[in-house]
Amino acid sequence: MIEIKNLSKSLGNKQVLKDIAFNLPKGGISSIIGPNGAGKSTLLCLMARLLSLDSGSVAFDGLDIAKTRDDTLAKKISILTQSNAISSRLSVEQLVMFGRFPHHRGRPRLADEEFVTIMLELMELTDIRFDFIDELSGGQQQRAFIAMILAQDTDYILLDEPLNNLDMKHARNIMKTLKDVADNMNKTIILVIHDINFAAHYSDYFIGLKQGEIIVRGDVDTVLTQSQIKLIYDIDVSINIINNKKHIFYYS
């Protein structure tokens, strides 16, 4: 379970997050949604201790992130931030193996290698496992990074815009994989996601953020309604149900 208590954060003079508090049960996919500048990425980074808290606390299964060692946390939570323009020349396989680093601390065992092989397969990277990531397309890079994060095998997985740079096929496949991982391996996945229909399709839980405050949270039926979306994004949408799933039309 994730417990967040009166969390606030200012960057510069601007207060980005105000008094955020919520609990998330274990399991499933949660999506943080909201307009640009709402503080979504900041919230994710704070939860993953990439930024320091101004006030409040975050705890995963009772582990307070401010009081727990970094290497312990690395086996509990993993995060993929948005821009990972790294200049290193690593092969895909090497990169994914670094996801195992918190477990093997520099001495990979057979089990680690097997794990990496599975993740490469899962992210459809097996064919390009020996290619250098700086020579891959943006989408391939993104998949390699997600494979690295999954290889870390943590209970909680935080992904900021995981569908960045991905085409339709790979975006869908990755969401399917994430759903699969969440359901069958009992992981808790938290996404920041812009494509609201992907969120609608695959998410179990939603957190609507606007101007640094949570204005609504809950399941599909609570959050993805015309009125709530109007509240969050300030636009009128129509919602249709196709194959038992909500489709939000906001194009016209």
């Binding site: 970094d70 990972n84 790294i86 520099g106 870390q152």
Partner: peptide
């Protein structure tokens, strides 16, 4: 510390994510 240095080279966020100081 070759592994640690390689991870450092991937940036601060990834280093922190992997539990490095």
């Amino acid at each position: 510390i070759a592994d640690q240095l390689t991870i450092i080279g991937m940036g601060k966020n990834i280093s922190l994510n992997l539990g490095l100081n």
